[in-house]
Design a protein around this nucleic acid. Structure first.
Lengths: 114, 114
DNA sequence: TTGACATACTTAGAAGTTCTATGTATATTG
DNA sequence: CAATATACATAGAACTTCTAAGTATGTCAA
């Protein structure tokens, strides 16, 4: 199981969450499962880290939530992306790719790589 | 000029600095110039953000500094990478690439690596 | 000679973030 | 019926980033 710096967690959690919600609405526990699945069980978020971020995104107006009841009777808080959130996601993508290009320049210029 | 979230700045500044120092020792002002150059003038760090990170890296034992005098007489604090810093850089690369793969899966973009 | 500018480094504190730990609630399973 | 999984919540300790302001000094044009 991967241990990431909290800086990298901080930089990636919002784009990851917004990306997952851009595909379809989801609830907290399912988002954690999705992240685990996407990362081949390497990345395991805990609720105590996820929910404050969801709350923050909702407070900023990027996502919105509503309670639903599942087939089994469980209450679930579903989150969905708002237009503002899509715009933020687009910007996060641009910025992430921009930094990634810088990393590529730095890391692929080492001698004897090509 | 690019405006990045402070989370992304936080996640990228250490690997960028350590990468620059893995090529050759450098001093603060030059690192800022190097970052500007690598990013095609899109990323402009300010000293007030850079030096606290340099101090932190030194305190953690990843880099070491020593004062030198340039040809023009200016005092410069040169930083160089220690073995511990190289190890951290290697781990940062792995982690960054790991998260980048996740972003790629989510965004379906071609990874810009190697 | 002088002032503006570039070079070079420093740091305090406001504002914000992450993680841990702990909590409540309830359906499922053995 | 107890353990586990599912589902959401939050306080506070520890930490981070940025802004702003600072000191210092070499260069350059007027």
């Amino acid at each position: 199981m991967k241990h990431l710096s909290k800086e990298l967690v901080g930089a990636s959690s919002i784009p990851i969450i917004l990306s997952i919600l851009s595909q379809k609405e989801s609830y907290g526990y399912e988002i954690i499962q999705k992240v685990k699945e996407i990362s081949d069980n390497e990345l395991v978020w805990v609720e105590g880290s996820l929910y404050p971020v969801l709350h923050k995104l909702e407070k900023r107006g990027y996502i919105v939530s509503d309670w639903k009841v599942s087939e089994s009777g469980r209450k679930r808080k579903y989150y969905s992306l708002k237009d503002a959130g899509k715009e933020v996601l687009d910007q996060e993508k641009i910025n992430w790719n921009f930094i990634n290009q810088i990393m590529t320049k730095l890391w692929n210029t080492e001698p004897n790589l090509i």
